[in-house]
Each structure stands twice: as structure tokens, then as C-alpha cells.
């Protein structure tokens, strides 16, 4: 089991290698790469009036990964975080259970956060800004010239998380709640009944929209608990995402509630000098 978990974490660690700093091996503290792989299952509700004026409800899945690392700013009080998540939902008309709409998206976020220790032992507050990129589509199986509603947005916003390290008996446990709240950005959405055929002819007017809380509201809530066994942790939790746009006569909303399970841990670079170096972890403290 442990071998599989380690393999998973190593694979997940391959993606952000470009972000690793080229540190002189003996001078700086060791900053392990915190890595998590998550699997989610739950339910989704969605509506996109471009496709149909009714709401749909069904099951949804997600697979995600997360990376965090301490940064050499302010005595390593800053961390960067990357999240990558693929979401899929299969839904039917809420009112009758008929019809069929699938939704899928790829979500990437890069955040930089500073943390402060709060007066409660083990409790820290991280706060900072993030950039998110989401791309996806809804597909309604009714056919016709408007079966697809494409979703793409780039946004900048705020993110914060509260992390509480404590022990359950002898077992170190880390509870975390993170909120991500895009504030400004851009997103695409055709007008009320504008066809993608017309867009393909070159009519991009009113296709690209400024994203503010007047036109869209996205949010991600994640509450996770990591039960830490030696070098890895079992993660369980709850994830909630909400994507919303209100513009051009159309309303789109996708809300998902997921049970989260995954594995997490700090990945260290193994070298002879590691044991003598100070370690600055991004998340775990105990």
C-alpha cells in the first residue's frame, strides 16, 4: 500500500518541477514539496439557459492534485500552491429525470499565500491571491445547432485557508479549510441565442466578457482532514465548487458537492546532507 501511495505522490510531483527553485544544496533550508492526489464523488446541479431554461441534477466525479511549497520570502512565511482538477457531471432534468446534460471542466489554480500563526496552538491562517484558469463545456443531448455551451475563464482573486494541526492520540492530524474567491477576470459566453456558427464566422462582439461579481461568481470551498501516517497522509474531506455567470441574457450555474478522499505527503529530495538542514514545510507543522 505504502509503495503505491509513494508512487502516486511521485507521479503527481512530476508536474510542477518547473517551479522548483535551483537552490544551492547546502545553504538554504529544505523545502519539501507538499503533494496530494484526490478523488471526489458526489452530486451536481447545473443550469445553463443558453441550452435549456431548466435545471439539471445528477452525479459528478473529480480527480485532482495539489502541490504546495514554502518560498524563500520573509523567512519562508510564504507558500505557493498549485491545484489541478478535472470535473465531470452527468445530469438529468431535475423536474422529471428525463433529458441528459453532461458537463466537464479542467480547472487550474496558482496561488501565493502568506501565513500567520494565530494565538491558538497549531492554528495558522494563510491568505493571499490566486490566478485560476477554467476550461470546459456542457453538452445537452437534445442535438440541434446548440448542443454545446463552451466555458472558459481566466480570473484573479483571493484565497485563504485556516490550518489546524493537532494530535489524535499519537496520530498527527491536520484539518484545513480553504476558500478561493475569484474577483476579476475574463470569460467567454455567447449572447442570449447567438450560435457558435455565427461566432465561427467572426462575430466575436459580446463574446468575451469582463468577469466581476456583477457578471459572475465562482467559489471553491474545501474542508479536508489529513491523518498522517509516517511519510504520507490519508485525506478525507468535503469539496464544494460553484461556477456562475450572469450575462448576455443567459444564466449559468454549476454547483457540486463532493466527498473527497486522497493521499498527501511531503516529498523530500533525498541527499546526504538532508538531515542537517532546516526543513520549512508548506502545510504540516507537527
Amino acid at each position: 500500500m505504502r509503495r503505491y501511495v509513494t508512487t502516486l505522490l511521485l507521479l503527481a510531483a512530476l508536474l510542477p518541477t518547473a517551479v522548483r527553485a535551483d537552490e544551492p544544496a547546502d545553504a538554504k533550508p529544505l523545502c519539501p514539496l507538499f503533494t496530494a492526489v484526490e478523488f471526489e464523488v458526489g452530486g451536481s446541479e447545473l443550469i445553463d439557459t443558453y441550452l435549456a431554461p431548466w435545471s439539471y441534477k445528477g452525479w459528478s466525479l473529480a480527480v485532482g492534485a495539489e502541490w504546495m511549497r514554502a518560498m524563500p520570502i520573509e523567512e519562508y512565511r510564504w507558500v505557493w500552491q498549485q491545484q489541478l482538477r478535472v470535473n465531470f457531471a452527468r445530469t438529468r432534468l431535475r423536474i422529471s429525470g428525463s433529458g441528459l446534460t453532461d458537463a466537464g471542466s479542467l480547472h487550474y489554480a496558482f496561488a501565493m499565500m502568506r501565513y500567520s500563526e494565530l494565538p491558538v496552538k497549531g492554528l495558522r491562517l494563510y491568505y493571499g491571491a490566486d490566478m485560476t484558469l477554467t476550461a470546459g463545456a456542457l453538452y445537452n443531448y437534445h442535438g440541434g445547432n446548440n448542443p454545446v455551451s463552451v466555458k472558459a475563464d481566466l480570473s484573479w482573486g483571493l484565497t485563504a485557508m485556516a490550518v489546524y494541526d493537532f494530535k489524535l492520540g499519537h496520530l498527527p492530524v491536520t484539518a484545513r479549510y480553504q476558500l478561493s474567491l475569484p474577483v476579476v477576470g475574463v470569460f467567454v459566453q455567447p449572447e442570449y441565442a447567438e450560435s457558435y456558427y455565427e461566432v465561427s464566422l467572426g462575430n466575436y462582439e459580446n463574446f468575451l466578457h469582463a468577469g466581476t461579481w456583477a457578471t459572475r461568481f465562482d467559489m471553491t470551498n474545501r474542508l479536508t482532514i489529513d491523518f498522517r501516517f509516517a511519510s504520507w497522509a490519508l485525506r478525507v474531506g468535503y469539496g464544494n465548487t460553484i461556477y456562475t455567470t450572469y450575462t448576455a441574457g443567459n444564466r449559468y450555474q454549476w454547483v457540486s458537492h463532493h466527498f473527497v478522499v486522497g493521499f498527501a505527503g511531503d516529498l523530500l529530495r533525498w541527499s546526504a546532507g538532508n538531515k542537517d538542514r532546516r526543513v520549512c514545510r508548506a502545510l504540516y507543522t507537527l
Partner: peptide
């Protein structure tokens, strides 16, 4: 008219000239 299609609550589809 370029037709669009929409679901009805009972799952039937209505296609109509839209553009």
C-alpha cells in the same frame, strides 16, 4: 432561420428558428 433546440420539462424537444 438557424434552428436551436430546447428541452421541455417532460424531456420532449422543441426545435425552432432562432437566428
Amino acid at each position: 432561420g438557424l434552428p436551436f433546440t430546447y428541452n421541455l420539462p417532460n424531456g420532449w424537444n422543441i426545435r425552432l428558428s432562432s437566428s
